[in-house]
Design a protein around this nucleic acid. Structure first.
Length: 286
DNA sequence: CCCCAGGTGAATA
DNA sequence: TATTCACATGGG
C-alpha cells in the first residue's frame, strides 16, 4: 500500500541529500525510488516537491525517522554563523539528520573506521543478507539487520567474511555486550551527552569518532560533532588554521569538537553534517 | 608500487 | 601525556 505525506512548505526536506550524504548505509536508489530497511520495515520512498510517496511504514514512522517535525529552519539559523557554513547550508538545504536504530548504527560506525563509505555499505549489506531475516511482501530482497544475538553466535571466520577485516573482533564483542545488556540503548539515551560518550567509548573499536556518530545519528545528541579526516580538513581550513599535519590526536579531536560545540551551539551536529555533505569530496552535495 | 578512506588500540618514551 | 605503528580492505 502506497501512501502520500505532504510536509509543510516552511519545513524543508530533501530526500536525496538526506539519504545520499553518508549518514545511513542501507538505502539504495533504484528506478527513482529509495529502498531501505529501517527497524525491520522494508521501505520504498520518493519525493515530488513537498510530497513524499512511500510504502512499508506508516506516517508516524516516516515522520519520526526523518525527523520531519524538527524545526529545520530554526536549527539552520542557529548554526549559520559565517560564510563557510552558510555556503554548506545553501548547498545541502533540506538535509535532515535521521533517527537510526542504535544497534545497526553502532555496528555501522565500528565498520567505518579507516575505510570509505562504499566499503561500509558493502559490509552492512553483507551482514544483513547473510544473517538478517528476510522481510516478506517487499518488492526487493529485503533483510533486517541481524540482532546482536545472531552476530554474537557467529564464528570469527563467518563474521570476517563480511569484509570486516580487523574490525571483526570489535563487532563480535559489541554483539556479545548488546546481547548481554538488552537495555544498553535505553541506558545510553537516558544519560547526558558526555556521560553517554564515555560509556560508548568503553566498547572495543569505539573511539571518539564512532561514539559521536552513534550519539548523533541514532540517539539524537545534536551537540555531538564527529571529527573524521574530511571534517578535520574543513575545520582546519576555515576555523583553526593553526592545525598542522594530517593525523588527529585525541587532544586535537577534543579541541575541534569543543570548539564546534561552543561556536555552532547545541546543534553543532547539524553543522558537522552540512559541512561534511558539502565537502569537496567524492560525494559532494549538489 | 604508491596513497587514501566518516579511526582505534597497543606499545613506547 | 604525546608519538608511533599495525591493522584488513578496496579503489584510484
Amino acid at each position: 500500500m502506497t501512501a502520500i505525506l505532504t510536509h509543510r512548505p516552511d519545513q524543508p526536506f530533501d530526500l536525496d541529500r538526506t539519504l545520499d550524504c553518508g549518514q545511513a548505509f542501507r538505502w539504495v536508489k533504484a528506478d527513482g525510488w529509495w529502498q531501505g530497511v529501517v527497524g525491520g520495515r522494508a521501505i520504498r520512498i520518493r519525493q515530488e516537491g513537498d510530497r513524499l510517496i512511500y510504502s512499508g511504514a506508516d506516517e508516524a514512522f516516516i515522520r519520526d525517522y526523518f525527523r520531519l517535525d524538527q524545526d529545520l529552519p530554526a536549527i539552520l539559523a542557529s548554526i549559520d554563523r559565517d560564510p563557510t557554513i552558510a555556503d554548506a547550508i545553501r548547498r545541502c538545504y533540506g538535509l535532515r539528520v535521521v533517527r537510526q536504530p542504535p544497534w545497526e548504527c553502532l555496528v555501522s560506525y565500528i565498520c567505518a573506521t579507516n575505510t570509505n563509505i562504499p566499503a561500509v555499505k558493502r559490509r552492512i549489506s553483507l551482514l544483513s543478507e547473510r544473517y538478517g531475516s528476510a522481510i516478506g511482501g517487499a518488492s526487493w530482497a529485503a533483510h533486517t539487520f541481524p540482532e546482536p544475538e545472531r552476530l554474537a553466535a557467529l564464528c570469527h571466520a563467518d563474521l570476517r567474511d563480511c569484509r570486516l577485516g580487523y574490525r571483526t573482533d570489535y563487532v563480535s564483542s559489541a554483539a556479545v555486550f548488546a546481547a548481554e545488556h538488552p537495555g544498553w540503548a535505553e541506558q545510553i539515551a537516558a544519560l547526558p551527552y558526555e556521560d553517554a560518550r564515555r560509556e560508548m567509548m568503553r566498547l572495543r573499536g569505539v573511539g571518539p569518532k564512532a561514539a559521536d556518530c552513534t550519539l548523533l545519528f541514532a540517539f539524537g545528541f545534536f551537540e555531538a560533532f564527529p571529527v573524521d579526516v574530511w571534517i578535520r580538513r574543513i575545520v582546519a581550513e576555515a576555523y583553526m588554521p593553526e592545525l598542522r599535519g594530517r593525523t588527529c590526536t585525541p587532544a586535537e579531536y577534543d579541541r575541534i569538537r569543543l570548539f564546534a560545540r561552543d561556536y555552532f551551539g547545541e546543534y553543532a551536529g547539524y553543522a558537522q553534517e552540512y559541512l561534511y555533505c558539502a565537502r569537496p569530496g567524492p560525494f559532494p552535495c549538489g
